[in-house]
Structures are given as C-alpha cells and as structure tokens.
Amino acid sequence: MFPRLKKHTVMPGFGMTLGFTLFYLSLIVLIPLSAVFIRAGGLSWHSFVDVAFSARELAAYRVTFLASLAAAMVNAAFGLVLAWVLVRYPFRGRRVIDALVDLPFALPTAVAGISLTAIYGKNGWIGRWIDPEGDMFLRFLSANGLLGDCTGYGFAGIRVAYTELGIFVAMTFIGLPFVVRTLQPVIEELEPEMEEAAATLGATRLQTLSKVILPELMPALLTGFALAFARALGEYGSIIFIAGNQPGKTEIVPLRILTKLEESNASAAHTPYAEATAVAAIMLVASFILLLLINLLQKWSRRHHAH
C-alpha cells in the first residue's frame, strides 16, 4: 500500500493565498460596498424613496445613464475603427497614435475636464466655431446671411460646454482606451485568412464584415463597451468642469452624492450621510444590473469560442 500523499504542486500555499484573497477582497471591496447599504438602510423606506427618487435625483440618473450609454456606444464604434487601423495597417506614426490612446487613462481627470471646457467653451478653439455665441460662428453665419432667426435656415449653433452634450463629450474622452485596448489583441489574433476564405466563397466586403469579422469580435467589443460604460457612469472629475451642473439638468449622480453630503438639511430627521448613501445605493444596484446584463450578453456571444 502506498501511503496517501498530497499531490505535489510547484507553487505551494493554496490555503494561505485563498485566505489572503478573501481577506483582501473584503477589506477593499465588500466592506465599503456593504457600508453603503447599511447606512442607506438607516432611512425609513418612505424617506429613502423620497430622497433617492426626488425629481432632481431622477434627472441626475437619467442624464448620467443616457450620456454614459451614448458615450459607450460611440466609443465602441470608433474604438473598433481605431483598433482596426492600429493593428492592420502599418503607417508612419502608428506607435505615437497607439501611445496617445492611453492618454485618457493617464491624464488626471481634472486636467481633461478643464481642457475640454476650454476647447468647447464659447471662446474655445472649437466652441467659437459652433457655439451660438461663439465669435467665429456669428461672424461666419452673418457674413453668409445664414443666421437662424432671420433666414429660416435655423442654424442655431451647438452648445457643448455646460450642457448634456458636454457630459457626453467628457465621457467619450475618458472611455476611449477601454474599447481600443480590449479589441487590439483580439484583432491581432484574427487571421486575415478568414477574410480571404470569405472572399473566395463569394462574400462581398460588407458581408465579410457583418458575417465574419463582427461576429468574431463581438465578445471583445461587448467587454470594451461594458468597461467604457462603467467608467463613464463613475466619472466625476472631468465632467463637473464641463457639465455646468445645473440642478435638474446637467447634474450627474456622483455630483448629487457629493452635494447631498455637503447640504446640511437641518429640518430633516436623518443625517446628510444617510441621504448620500441612499443615492449611492441606487447607483450601485443599477450598475450591478447593467453589468450582469452585459455579462450575460457576452456569455451568449462567446458561446462558440469555448475550447
């Protein structure tokens, strides 16, 4: 009889590393998250609903989620193009562009916010050409007799800074690297032979794209989309500069949480902290649900890729 021996593994200490993992995750992730629910639970159900679903809060949820969704979609589309170009075509300056993609990762968000505001403001490089009050916009249109009111063409200009559009622009900026960086390795792995096979079988370029390339990239594209979306939902620093933060219009949820904390509502029976966590809890649950949905979608689109 052989004595019972433990299977020898190269790296020892499963028990210890698992213990560490659980401890670390609890400390860094689970305890803070549960604190949100516990503090929010301090409110009565009635006041929780009052606080978390006031008109001002609802407007904030709306603008945050819609702008994040729009930004993530735009990032998915253009990130795909960018990743494709960076992988498939060798050109001069490719590495510079490749490095630039990471900039939104590395840039302090306040820097991003202030430069975006400067560019899109009515006196900024871009803003002066498109803002209704931009000097170049006015000069150009009046020179051509195209100004909205008098001609009926309705060139009213586009205001970016201090509007929902500004929020969207900032979210797009910070979400870009996620899609590009998730797609790049997958596109690198995509054999050009697959496209050639489709071509010899008679597929047009559009068919090759829609029936071969996109399905192959879909799981990665969804991952990139989810990451960009989650990042946009949580973004604070760059947005508060460009959003204008008008109550009920361009306030984002993270800002609401902060202002709730700062408001000293003396008449209320509960602390500002509890109010802030109520909003945070809603945000957390909504994000969870969205990530769950995207994960399910990913699993579904990845079903054939299992080995």
């Binding site: 054999e191 032979e193 697959m194 050639e196 096979a197 489709a198 071969v212 399905p215 192959e216 879909m218 054939h304 890729h305």
Partner: peptide, 8 residues
Amino acid sequence: HYALFRHL
C-alpha cells in the same frame, strides 16, 4: 490553418 469561421 483551415481559416474556419469560429462562430459558426
């Protein structure tokens, strides 16, 4: 390397 469509 076959170049089969993996998703089909």
